[in-house]
Structure formats: structure tokens, C-alpha cells
């Protein structure tokens, strides 16, 4: 029964966060300097008096605030995130169209950074004090301090413009006309630079975290017990240290999902990757507020879902959770 309670509580929490972001969006629209209607319309739409009048009616902008909130909430929860005057499309359609590209990029970057980060962290901890350790940790320190967008630009400068190894822009070769495997390969080719540049910052974080966690676990009593049993060092690391050390890294990584999406805005901007990050940047340039707020809401929802899944998974991996909750 406890598990049911847990799932129920987590679902409730997730729902509240999404609801909270919707309300936050609503408040932002009303707190913004200027007329809420022009915010809802976006800068381009604000010039169109008929459109503004229509928005006033639709959102009941002359009605009491709580009623406006209700109208707004009902719309948002049924998938109506407003209309992009600039694009002449519903915001939801725009976002759903771009979402897969972002999920592909962030997913790849997540796996890349987690795998590489854990690997480097384990090696550094195992070879603590060696040249390898110093090299890995210095690298991590540097990439932890480097702005994502600048790494992306430098990567384009070196690998695309100078070496001409990898394509600098877009998700596919324009007019390439590839299909099937050839297309997948083409996308993969375009994916490398964005994935690596987005992932490196997070790789640095996970490397540092894994190393610290490994060293911490290696100093715990049960590792001494394993030695007292006559277990060889390599097996101790594999069977006893690794699992205990990596669990906190996973928890932390899933909490970083939001950061990853934030990083995607920058990466997609540099690489003209057709995802919602790029959409957000375009909306910024055009002052297209409905799109901006819509992307914000959807990214929050995605993060909430990722956290939910990781929480539920975590329960299977760590037997202690059930006792603690």
C-alpha cells in the first residue's frame, strides 16, 4: 500500500507544479508592464486592433481577475496555449512540431554526459592522486566554468569552419533528400556537435560528483568489511562501491533535467537546431509572448515528467526508500 501512496503523492506533486506554472504564467501576463491583451497578442499582434478586441473577449479581460484566471487555466489545461499572431498558428501546434527535435538533442546529451561523466569520475577516483586523476579533474573544472554557448561557437569555429568535419547548422542537410537509414545517419551527423557541446558542461558536473561520491563510499565501513572478507580491490569497487556511489549521481542527474532544457535554448540557437529552444529564441526576437510562455510551460511539464519517472525508478533501485518514506 505504501507504494500506491508514494505514486499517488508523486503524481499529485507533479500536477501541482504544472498547475503552478500555469498560474505563474497568468500572473506574469498581468504583472508585465502594459496591457495584458497586448502581452497575450505578442508584439506583432498588438498592432492589430481587431485581434486585440477578440483576445479581450476570449480571456474576459474586463472581468474580475479570478474569472480571468479560470478562463486561462481551462484553456491551458485543455492544451490551448494561445495563438501566435506572428506564425499564424496555435502555440501548441508550433511547440508539438518542434518538441521531438529538442527531446532528441537533450536525450542524447543526457546519455552522453551521464555515461562519460560517470566513467571519468570512476577512473579518477580509482586512480586518485595520479596524473590521470589530475588531468580529468582539471578538464572538468574548466568545462564547468565555460559558457555553453561559447563552447558551441568555438566548436563550430574549429570543427566546421576550419576543419570542415561536421555540419555547423541545422538538423538535416537541406535538400539532401535522404530517406530511411541514410536520413538517420545524416541527422546523426548533424547531432554530434550539438550533443557534445551541450553535454560537456554536464559531463563536468557528473565527473566531479561521481568522483566525490566514489571516494566517500570508499571510506565507509562496509568497504572495510569487504576487505576483511578477503574480497580483491577490483571486485570491491565493482560490487560494493559502484552501486552505492552512482545512485546519488543518478538522483542529481534527473534533477538537472531542467538545466539541460535551459542549455538546449543556447545550443539550439547556435546550431539553428529546429527545437523548442530555437523557437524560444525566435519568440524572444519577435516579442512573441504567447510562444515564450507556452514553451516555458511545456518545458516545465517535460521536466516534471522526467522527475516523476526517475523518482519511481529510483524506488526500485534503492530498497531503503520504502522504509524511509
Amino acid at each position: 500500500m505504501k507504494s500506491l501512496d508514494f505514486v499517488f503523492q508523486r503524481l499529485l506533486k507533479a500536477a501541482f507544479v504544472v498547475l503552478g506554472v500555469v498560474i505563474l504564467n497568468f500572473l506574469l501576463v498581468h504583472m508585465a508592464p502594459g496591457d495584458p491583451a497586448s502581452v497575450l497578442a505578442g508584439e506583432a499582434g498588438a498592432g492589430d486592433a481587431k485581434y486585440i478586441a477578440q483576445l479581450r473577449a476570449q480571456f474576459g479581460l474586463d472581468q474580475p481577475l479570478y474569472q480571468q484566471l479560470w478562463t486561462y487555466l481551462r484553456g491551458a489545461l485543455t492544451g490551448d496555449l494561445g495563438f501566435s499572431y506572428r506564425n499564424q498558428l496555435p502555440v501548441m501546434t508550433l511547440i508539438l512540431d518542434r518538441l521531438p527535435a529538442t527531446l532528441l538533442l537533450t536525450g542524447c546529451a543526457f546519455v552522453f554526459s551521464l555515461v562519460l561523466g560517470i566513467l571519468l569520475g570512476v577512473v579518477a577516483a580509482y586512480r586518485r592522486g595520479s596524473v590521470t586523476d589530475s588531468a580529468v579533474m582539471t578538464g572538468a573544472l574548466i568545462f564547468y566554468a565555460t559558457p555553453l554557448f561559447w563552447v558551441a561557437l568555438m566548436a563550430v569555429l574549429v570543427f566546421s569552419l576550419h576543419l570542415d568535419w561536421l555540419p555547423p547548422f541545422d538538423m538535416e542537410t537541406i535538400g539532401g533528400g535522404y530517406t530511411g537509414w541514410a536520413r538517420a545517419l545524416d541527422i546523426g551527423h548533424h547531432l554530434i556537435l550539438p550533443t557534445v557541446t551541450l553535454g560537456l558542461f554536464f559531463t563536468a558536473i557528473y565527473t566531479r560528483l561521481t568522483r566525490a561520491s566514489m571516494l566517500e563510499v570508499m571510506s565507509l565501513d562496509f568497504v572495510k568489511t569487504a576487505r576483511a572478507k578477503g574480497v580483491p580491490q577490483a571486485r570491491i569497487i565493482r560490487r560494493h562501491v559502484l552501486r552505492n556511489a552512482i545512485l546519488p549521481v543518478f538522483t542529481f542527474a534527473s534533477m538537472q533535467a531542467g538545466q539541460l532544457v535551459g542549455g538546449a535554448v543556447l545550443t539550439e540557437t547556435v546550431f539553428a537546431w529546429p527545437g523548442i529552444g530555437r523557437l524560444m529564441f525566435d519568440a524572444l526576437l519577435q516579442r512573441d509572448y504567447p510562444v515564450l510562455l507556452g514553451v516555458f510551460l511545456v518545458t516545465a511539464a517535460v521536466v516534471v515528467i522526467v522527475n516523476l519517472i526517475s523518482d519511481l525508478l529510483y524506488r526500485f533501485v534503492d530498497p531503503r526508500i520504502e522504509a524511509a518514506s
Binding site: K224, T225, A228, G230, V231, N244, L247
Partner: peptide, 19 residues
């Protein structure tokens, strides 16, 4: 170790691998 000589520690909880 573990075969010819063995050891029991003070804190049995921390001496066992929690996972």
C-alpha cells in the same frame, strides 16, 4: 582474510553493504 582469519566490527549497520 575471511578464510583463515575473520573480523566482526562494532557497528553492524554501517559494516554491511546497504544495497
Amino acid at each position: 582474510r575471511g578464510r583463515a582469519m575473520a573480523m566482526v566490527f562494532q557497528e553492524p549497520l554501517s559494516a554491511l553493504n546497504p544495497l
